[in-house]
Design a binder for these strands. Structure first.
Lengths: 364, 364
DNA sequence: TTGAAAGCGGTACCAA
DNA sequence: TTGGTACCGCTTTCAA
């Protein structure tokens, strides 16, 4: 049932099976009508004889013809109206919310969103971003993994507007919407200090991740501000996955002189840390950056440094669409505030080695 | 600093500010070079005099020229390599996992994924799907909300391959990958019956949703199989959101003759039901369809009818790419099995009004 | 009712 | 090093 597509433009007809996708021209040839007639049938324009239309439809079916939307859009002057979203991991609830919100804003602006996961790998970030650019996205929302985004502007041909989300751009000037990481982390750790903790561990992502660095900085600021030493044995950077965070936390809790409180740097680390605490039935305080579903339903409800991922995503998306609409202001940097949500786990007081009962004191 | 773009093709130059996007032709005119030279500069082809290149780049900057990727792709014969994913709500962890897995498979096949949320609204499903088709996606993965998908095949011009996910297509023949809903729900309810429950409530989505109907059917089968009556007062269909599911469950628990066990139809309903149970401190058994993060960390770990969303997504995506590669088999229907995961909440026995201690009996 | 030809905005080949 | 011209696959205009 193979139909060999004739080569056009006066070439000698190929005897080799042509793998080229059938075009409207091919359909026209097979149906024995003109190109325009096929176009009419395909687009359901009125004024085509039923009999003719049937012949054309037969040809379409036989060739399994599909209209080339690229050519169509070019001719109609239609832009693809696509924006790209480069994200670390869609399955992370934080990013899922971000993605959903962006999709929402985009749809209201008549745009669709192409997603690409970087998997926290700079190489792959670059790869997928390039892929998005080749597909002609009008703008880009990026949660960067890389440490050099000059490649975005290397090609003068595609001066794509980009807004960076959650983390700032590296080595380029661009819009960004980020969380107030240092202050948020500092407040979270200060909260633990206020409840009597002196040995507070930090469980976080690798130091290549900017948010990790900033939150660790907030952690250090809090300790220093209270005149407490920073024990590097209690700082674990490099646990981007739940299972690794759990392992890290287990190690921390097994130390000779274990921490009495844990600060986890994001929702993934939080879940891991909480699993370790639960598994070891350890009586340690806990505060995590990022809120997460069911945090309030745990046996000891989790105290978190909360924020609104949707607000962040909305701000970034609106910024991008502003740029697409011609906004010429210098690069903006929007900082989204955080808010400590005390639920119980952060209010656990440390055991008192010197017989001082902090818990009684704090309960008033 | 506005530069009026001359109208070409012999038209009288417009005095009105032209809003048309600048083309390579415009850049060439401004720079005083040929079209081809601009193309060389834009694509960084070697062999352009530095001085000439500088002039071209100046013109590009002044006009804020951007290469038209649609035209480029047409000429280069490049397909957009896009597939569309129509999903209910990206923020639902179940769909987030699905989306992420699909993105993964697509990337391995060299494709990118355009996402669109239907928000469980048939009208919007149709709208966003049409949008995806206009953007030239090669294939479609759909978690359908609508009850009539003939619109997908109304236009002979775009015979897009579609694979339906989680729910079957309506009124059209197409591939689908679904969960074993009836059996899964039946097993979950049977599990509750085996632990002595006779009044089991069902908390589920509206009956327009196919999965809801099937899971309710499994629920009924289980009851009937055990010779138990189906009390329609205990069946709540229509709670697609966490807060609504919580309200529904509160009502159920406030009944004169309340249920001793709750079966929730998906992860959203589960979270809502568990919130209600927790808030009322009710001692009822619970089993939910869909596993969810932290289910095992709750005060009473949640028993669920689990399954692998990633497996489902992978199967659907591979099916689609098979079709894109020319797979001509008749429409497939793949059913993904479920598995009961007992964690505690489903093993709670009902209070025994007649003094029969089920708990002792069941504990052996 | 049907068709011929121009052109959407680029790229490719070949000539200058 | 630079430019002319055909052409990617479709829609549009106008004529037959």
């Amino acid at each position: 049932m193979d139909i060999t597509l004739a080569s056009h433009r006066g070439e000698i007809p190929s005897t080799v099976q042509v793998v080229r996708k059938p075009t409207m021209r091919d359909v026209a040839d097979v149906a024995g009508v003109s190109l325009k007639t096929v176009s009419r049938v395909v687009n359901m324009e009125p004024g085509v004889d039923d009999h003719t239309a049937a012949r054309v439809e037969g040809a379409i079916a036989r060739l399994a013809y599909r209209r080339n939307e690229v050519a169509r859009n070019l001719r109609k002057g239609i832009s693809l109206a696509l924006i790209g979203l480069v994200i670390e991991d869609l399955a992370n609830p934080f990013y899922a919310t971000v993605a959903r919100t962006i999709e929402d804003v985009a749809r209201r602006h008549g745009y669709a969103v192409v997603m690409a996961s970087s998997g926290e790998d700079p190489e792959r970030e670059r790869e997928v971003t390039t892929g998005l650019l080749q597909r002609g996205v009008q703008g880009l929302l990026i949660v960067p993994a890389g440490s050099d985004h000059r490649y975005l502007y290397a090609d003068r041909a595609m001066r794509t507007k980009a807004v960076f989300l959650d983390r700032p751009p590296a080595l380029v000037e661009a819009d960004s919407v980020v969380l107030d990481n240092i202050v948020g982390a500092r407040r979270g750790v200060e909260h633990l200090i206020a409840h009597g903790h002196r040995r507070i561990a930090f469980v976080g992502d690798p130091p290549m991740v900017q948010t990790s660095v900033e939150r660790a900085e907030g952690y250090r600021q809090a300790l220093k501000g209270a005149g407490l030493p920073v024990d590097e044995a209690l700082v674990r950077l490099g646990t981007p996955r739940v299972d690794l965070a759990e392992a890290s936390t287990r190690q921390l809790l097994a130390l000779q002189d274990p921490p009495t409180a844990i600060f986890a740097q994001n929702n993934r680390n939080s879940v891991g840390a909480l699993r370790a605490i639960r598994a070891l039935d350890a009586r340690v305080a806990f505060v995590g950056f990022d809120d997460f579903e069911l945090a309030d339903m745990l046996p000891v409800p989790a105290t978190v440094v909360g924020h609104d991922p949707a607000e962040m995503a909305r701000a970034a998306a609106e910024l991008l669409f502003g740029r697409l609409a011609g906004d010429q202001r210098p690069p903006q940097r929007i900082v989204i505030p955080t808010k400590l949500i005390a639920r119980g786990s952060g209010e656990i007081v440390p055991p008192s080695p010197r017989g001082v009962d902090f818990s009684r004191r704090l309960r008033r």
